[in-house]
């Protein structure tokens, strides 16, 4: 205020160069500046992936454990490639080979890993808040690779990266997210990220699959898919899990597709330059018609490609970013 009154420019805060936090637990606790820092860093990381020799020494000597308690191909592979491109020593622990089957608690598993001094633990777990538990008991940086139905922050970051790549901005875009909102960690992370960057977010699904008080997240909710996609700049589909029928959330996959499935006809209601996104794995013919998934508006494989760059950025920035490199 004082600076404005005297007519001189307000002193600029120095631009962020690192994430000054131990862990990445979710998008909810990130500032817009931190999100933008990750997205900008990912642009540089993406360039590395286009080189003939796709490797930089940024995380040389760092040990990263990918601790996956849920099956995952895309996310685990993406993290692993990101770690290798940054020259980290990475190892994968999957549930089938872990000691959890012997009755060990998550806390004990984590503390045993900690005893071997890893620098980061990338955790995928079926319980919401599992990363928070580890964050409290571990010295290592915890990176959330999906916890229950809570958050999947790197997915939202790669989605935002993909949107920015195509649209050059996020603020003011109409983003329609359609599918199983209730059980989706991708939804929660995306809502936080997109609203922090001032997108106009619409969420859509049957009322049985819309979380309580969803509008308190700063989004608009509807069960009329045509309304959600009308003039949308971005359409993001969420996976419908087949077992949800058992919980009587909707009558049948066929009916779901008839009411909510993303068909070419529905896509025509969106802006002519709309993009179609899906975090995968897709159920063709349920939440998305194959013609749409494979069609000209689809950026689904771009999302996967960008996942590596975004995860490289997250790991790099958590390790201290440029400051760490200067010190080293």
């Amino acid at each position: 205020m004082t600076a404005q009154r005297t007519g001189t420019a307000a002193p600029q805060a120095p631009p962020l160069t690192a994430l000054r936090r131990k862990d990445l637990l979710g998008i909810a606790e990130l500032s817009p500046e931190e999100i933008v820092l990750i997205l900008q860093t990912a642009e540089a990381m993406k360039e590395i992936g286009s080189r003939p020799i796709k490797k930089v020494p940024a995380l040389r000597g760092k040990t990263v454990v990918n601790l996956f308690f849920e099956p995952s191909t895309r996310t685990r592979t993406s993290f692993e490639i990101a770690e290798k491109r940054l020259s980290a020593d990475s190892l994968n622990i999957a549930i089938a080979s872990s000691s959890v089957v012997k009755g060990e608690t998550l806390a004990d598993t984590a503390l045993n890993l900690e005893a071997m001094h890893p620098d980061m633990i990338v955790l995928r777990h079926s319980s919401s808040g599992a990363c928070h538990l580890l964050s409290r008991i571990c010295r290592s940086a915890i990176v959330n690779a999906g916890d229950g139905t809570h958050e999947h922050p790197t997915q939202a970051l790669l989605d935002a990266f993909t949107i920015r790549e195509r649209k050059k901005r996020i603020a003011g875009l109409k983003v329609a997210i359609v599918g199983d909102l209730l059980h989706s960690r991708v939804l929660r992370s995306n809502i936080h990220l997109l609203t922090k960057l001032h997108a106009d977010v619409w969420v859509c699904g049957p009322p049985t699959l819309i979380p309580t008080d969803i509008t308190r997240f700063g989004v608009r909710a509807t069960s009329v898919v045509e309304e959600a996609v009308e003039d949308a700049d971005v359409i993001m589909l969420l996976r419908i899990q087949l077992e949800r029928m058992q919980g009587a959330f909707f009558p049948s996959l066929r009916e779901y597709f008839n009411v909510f499935g993303m068909t070419e006809e529905r896509v025509r209601r969106a802006r002519p330059d709309t993009i179609i996104m899906h975090p995968g794995p897709m159920n063709r013919g349920v939440e998305i018609a194959s013609e749409v998934a494979d069609g000209p508006f689809s950026v689904i494989l771009d999302q996967v490609a960008n996942g590596v760059a975004v995860r490289m950025a997250v790991l790099y920035l958590l390790a201290g970013g440029a400051e760490h490199e200067e010190a080293a």
Partner: peptide, 13 residues
């Protein structure tokens, strides 16, 4: 409790 907090934290309500 099924409400905003459970929705935000991804806890079954």
């Amino acid at each position: 409790h099924e409400g905003y907090q459970a929705a935000a934290l991804g806890l079954r309500g």
